[in-house]
Amino acid sequence: MRSRRKLQRIAIILLSALTLVVVGFVGAGCTTSNDYLLSWHLVDSGKHCDWDANQSKYESYVVSGAKTWNAYKAGVFRPDSISVVQDVRISDVSELGESWLGETSPLGYINLNKALLDEVSSNCKQNTVLHELGHALGLDHNDNASTNIMYSYNTAVTALSSSDKSSYDASYARY
């Protein structure tokens, strides 16, 4: 009888501990009230996100976008080279029938949709590229304000908001 009760207690403690681990694990990828994070990112273990945009007509926007994010946390974005292997490949697609301007995949690529991007202003193009680079850093959409780069929909905003920076702080902590 005693040993049965003891076993029950041990089982409850083990299960509780396991639950805490799972909740903590999930919580690491979940958002707090200020941080909007994806459960993945494309930053390597050296805290770099090395990009290749040689094939993209928007490469100048990528350079500028990387500079904007790096102004907040230096050196994370780097162009790839012979010695620096890419973490994210940025290329253009032409999908007239799709309603997205850009997409970022955890498989290691960003696609920019020329069919729509060519029709928007320079600032809107920059906003799209900044936004997709934000996803590569592990930031999720943040629809609390349209002044966020990580707002779900395209705008002409080209500067990081305090919410963007807060989310970036949280994402950076997990690289």
């Binding site: 994806l38 309603s99 995949s105």
Partner: peptide, 21 residues
């Protein structure tokens, strides 16, 4: 509920998008 969910040996890899609508 996590990326990395594996079913039948295949892991979900959700892409995120920026839409015009």
């Amino acid at each position: 509920i996590y990326f990395g969910v594996t079913k039948g040996g295949i892991t979900l890899a959700p892409a995120v998008r920026s839409y015009v609508i």
